[in-house]
Design a protein around this nucleic acid. Structure first.
Lengths: 328, 328
DNA sequence: CTGTTAGCGCATTCAT
DNA sequence: ATGAATGCGCTAACAG
């Protein structure tokens, strides 16, 4: 900035005023400064500016890493942000490869108060009591508590998936559940159990394993599960990554999907449709979830209130990984 | 930070030393400060810290917006960044909805020198002569000039696509090209023309339209193109978004794909496989492109040299949107 | 209308 | 081993 000031023959604060369109600057001076800025290709540093200003017109999106789930949300957020005048800053604060609990609080304090005006936090695991800036969380740990949150109908989706399998004639239906610290994992298991109960099928704890929402972790537990003599005829996996792990293991063990084993996932990330066979899954409206989260955040930034909890519907998408059980 | 200092009964600089592991602090004091930090959930502000320190251990990824192309790259970058100790900061600097040329220079000067140690720029449109930090660009405008760049084999991919259509018996092959300011658009048209020439098919300028790489823009020009009495029997679209626009228009006009019209795309974004019919396209290794860009940037950050231009192969993926021309 | 002064939150000498 | 002073690039308040 001092370069610009020197080249234009004015002081640094004058340049600042011109940039921010404050009045109290002669038109001729303003012209000259603008010309110099254009000439030098100067752009104010976001960092230094945010140190002094209250708002930066930048919204932060906090994720652990960029994987299919978070990037789908990003697309929705991005399209909803178009034309609002806000810029987007997506921050992946995962250094070690291990998601330490509290990452969202750490990332938030690194960015909040200065760099960003508001934040969208994806799958936070802890409850952030008070934040200096407006925050909307997507698919939070704690469900509708604390600040504004948005998720999709996890119980309803899980019920739709389980009832689909029951309707096909399955009775030995396993469930690979997700990470224990996420509310969505809990809710999906609840939906699974509700459906069994409604159909009069006794709940068998031996048919529930933890796959941590990850393909590799799921593959390990699935190997054991599908090697049992009394193996299940169907698996409801808590997300698509897990379901894909099940498909891999089924292939290893020589089980045909869906003839020998039916598999249902959750999320409907793009590769669900590209799996072999194409995966029957519960579609979460990831794009809409992101777009709606951004709209809620804009409301909060505008000083208006939003509902503490918004829920979007989840719907079953039947593809080729489910069929009646063998011998039915 | 002053809160921490006060609670621990020490001065602010002492806290700073503890955080940065400098020596000159008593072990007991250090313990106490650490405990207070844990207790208060304190995390140093990225902004303030980056103002004074030379490095932040954050890598910036500059994009215009988060769409399928850039988010696929993001996933590749993210997986390659895992365990390197660097955090990722993806910045979408597009406010107005219109990609102003020079956005990458503006975004870079906003973030460089302070917030980020290095940057990966996705599809830059202008050549940035000198940058204060290491930069790797993906799919740049100018091709192998300026700083380190990586892209895939656009000419080869376009030739593979065009030759596939010629091999099926097509001779009236249209090309919907991409944004004029991108090198990839230029290179893909060159590959298209080379293939025609090699097959002895005269080049017809009337069969080339500009679709700007976007579904909507493409749909408009495709409507005109496919309504002509002498309409082409095949279309090579410069990217998948364009190809999907062509599929839509073909549907509107009652043309069956691939019986009446063959369509080939470029990129192989996830929805190409999910299109109706599944799209024959040229696969760019987007994941690898991102991962390799990160590796190159790490080399540069380590003070080592990298090749000025890295090219990854592009390969044809034949799905269901191509067939011999009608009457063949 | 323009320049001067002060301070945002932290890291870094240098002095104690 | 600890604290006071200084500056990073910028902007707000005020003085000229």
């Amino acid at each position: 900035m001092s370069d610009v000031a020197r080249a234009a023959g004015v002081s640094v604060p004058t340049v600042s005023k011109v940039i921010n369109g404050r009045d109290g600057v002669a038109a001729a001076t303003s012209q000259r400064v603008l010309a110099v800025i254009e000439n030098l290709g100067y752009e104010s540093s976001l960092v230094a500016r945010s140190l002094r200003r209250t708002r930066t017109d930048v919204i932060g999106i906090l994720v652990t890493e960029f994987e299919p789930f978070s990037t789908e949300l990003l697309k929705g957020i991005s399209s909803a942000a178009d034309g609002t005048g806000y810029e987007l800053l997506a921050y992946a604060g995962l250094v070690s490869g291990e998601a330490r609990p509290g990452w969202e609080r750490r990332s938030l304090s690194r960015l909040a108060g200065t760099l960003i005006d508001g934040a969208i936090v994806v799958t936070p695991t802890t409850l952030m009591a008070s934040t200096p800036i407006p925050v909307v969380s997507i698919d939070p740990h704690t469900g509708p508590e604390g600040h504004a949150a948005i998720d999709s109908d996890n119980i309803g989706g899980a019920r739709a998936a389980t009832e689909h399998l029951i309707g096909l004639g399955h009775r030995r239906i396993a469930h690979i559940r997700g990470r224990a610290d996420l509310a969505s994992a809990e809710l999906r298991e609840i939906g699974y159990r509700q459906s069994l109960e409604a159909a009069g099928i006794p709940f068998d704890p031996a048919l529930v394993c933890v796959g941590d929402y990850q393909t590799a972790a799921t593959a390990e537990v699935a190997r054991e599960l599908l090697s049992r003599p009394d193996r299940p005829t169907a698996v409801f996996a808590a997300n698509d990554s897990s379901a894909i792990g099940v498909l891999q293991v089924a292939g290893e063990l020589g089980l045909r999907v869906p003839q020998d084993l039916s598999v249902v996932g959750f999320d409907d990330v793009p590769q669900a449709a590209n799996a072999t066979p194409p995966l029957t899954t519960v579609a979460q409206p990831l794009h809409d979830l992101g777009a709606e989260a951004l709209r809620m955040l804009l409301e909060l930034l505008g000083g208006r209130d939003v509902p503490a909890h918004v829920q979007l519907p989840a719907s079953l998408v039947v593809r080729a990984s489910t069929a009646p059980p063998p011998g039915a």
